[in-house]
Amino acid sequence: MWLAFLAPFFYVTYGFANWLASQRDDVGSIVFAWERGIPFIAWTIVPYWSINLFYGLSLLLNDTKRGVDRLAGRYLTAQIVAVACFILFPLTATFMRPQTSGLPGFMFAVLGGFDKPFNQAPSLHIALLVIIWDHWRCRLKGMAAIVWHVWCFLIGTSVLTTWQHHVIDIPTGALLGFFALWLFPRDGELPFAGFRLTADPKARRLALFYALVAALALAGAVAGAFVSALLLILLWPALALAIVAFAYAGAGAKVFQKAADGSISLASRVLLLPYRLGARINVW
Rank of each mutant, 00 (worst) to 15 (best):
L241R: 09
Y210H: 15
P98F: 07
L231C: 04
A242F: 13
A242W: 11
D134N: 14
V150D: 09
Y11K: 00
F106H: 10
A211N: 11
G224R: 04
L183R: 12
Q79K: 01
H125Q: 03
R205P: 00
F179K: 07
I168N: 03
W136L: 02
A42M: 09
T198C: 07
N119A: 01
G262Q: 01
F209I: 12
L103A: 10
P191M: 11
R276V: 06
H149T: 14
W2N: 05
D25Q: 11
G15N: 03
A242C: 11
F114T: 05
P237G: 06
A193Y: 12
F209G: 09
K65A: 13
I146D: 11
V283R: 15
A207L: 10
R74P: 06
A121H: 00
P90V: 02
A82G: 04
K258H: 00
L3K: 00
I233S: 11
I264D: 05
K141Q: 14
L231K: 10
G262D: 02
I233G: 08
A211Y: 11
A223M: 14
P122M: 03
G194W: 14
I168Q: 04
L234R: 08
P90E: 04
I281R: 12
A93N: 14
P39A: 08
G56Q: 13
D25N: 14
W34P: 01
D69W: 03
G67W: 08
V150P: 03
